[in-house]
Amino acid sequence: MQDYIELTPNTENELVQLLTTESWPFHGNEKPNKEEIEQSLKEGNYTENGTKTFLIKVNNETIGMVRSFDLEDESCLFDLRIKEAYRGKGRGAHAVKWLTDYLFTNYVHLIRIEGHTRHDNFAMRKTFHSCGYVKEAYHRSAWPQNDKLFDSVGYAVTKTDWFQNITTPIKDSVPY
């Protein structure tokens, strides 16, 4: 059973522990330190200004987090992180499906949810696809990490597709 616990001041230490004891190879800062995460918490990057974060737990162990932001807009984004020991076991797909249901149910003004990943993060790309997200964009040299620029890929699900449980492919026959 995978549970989603909303981040509160009482659980912030669990988030700091999660983010500073794991490596995040497909995120801009692969190894954030405690001070960086604490400063980000103070700035409201996890719980304020249209942002909501949930700890992902299995048997009371924090195994990941999912953070949605731009929730005041009609289109929001999210960040997902799963501990290495739990990757490749369907935990990410479960979290994406849960978050999609949660956001479209609780934020009725949302018309779409977006996510972006590095082009070589095949596990996340497969997760997007299996959760009904459609690849909508390929961005060249758009993901700065470790003094390099990587390509990134953008995916989205629309509320209409989610509600009807369908996936509408992109219809663009223009060659330019």
Results as ranks from 00 to 15, higher is better:
T160C: 07
F163T: 13
V58H: 06
T168I: 09
F128R: 04
E48Q: 14
I5D: 09
S152A: 12
G88Q: 12
V174P: 05
Q145P: 03
Q17N: 09
Q2C: 13
L80Q: 06
T127R: 02
L7P: 04
C76Y: 04
K31E: 13
T53G: 01
L71G: 11
E6F: 10
H129Q: 14
F104D: 06
R118F: 01
T47W: 12
P144S: 07
E61Q: 09
Q2H: 15
W143D: 04
N106W: 09
R112A: 04
K57M: 10
P9C: 11
R112Q: 03
K126V: 03
I170K: 15
D73F: 10
T47R: 14
V58W: 01
P25T: 06
M124Q: 02
H27Y: 12
N33F: 13
V157M: 04
R81G: 10
K89D: 02
D172V: 12
H119L: 08
F128P: 00
F78M: 13
V134K: 12
S130D: 14
P32I: 06
D3C: 14
Q145V: 04
N106F: 11
Q164P: 01
E61A: 06
E6L: 14
D172S: 15
V66N: 03
Q17W: 01
Y102V: 10
G50K: 08
N106G: 05
D3Q: 15
F26N: 08
L7I: 06
P32L: 05
D3A: 14
E114P: 04
F104C: 02
T127A: 00
E36N: 03
D79H: 08
E61L: 08
K148Y: 12
A156Y: 06
K171N: 13
D172G: 13
E35D: 11
K31M: 13
F150Y: 15
K159N: 02
D3S: 15
W162H: 03
I63Y: 00
F128M: 04
W24S: 07
L110F: 07
I166F: 03
K83V: 05
T105A: 11
E12P: 02
I56G: 04
A142G: 04
E74Y: 13
F26D: 05
I5G: 05
E114F: 10
E72P: 10
K34P: 01
M1D: 12
Y133E: 04
L77S: 14
Q17H: 08
V66Y: 09
R118L: 02
A95F: 04
Q39K: 13
E61N: 09
L110H: 08
T20G: 00
W162L: 00
K31R: 15
L19W: 05
P144N: 02
L18E: 00
G50E: 08
H116R: 09
K148H: 13
L41P: 07
H116K: 03
R118H: 06
F104V: 04
G88W: 08
V157S: 01
M124L: 11
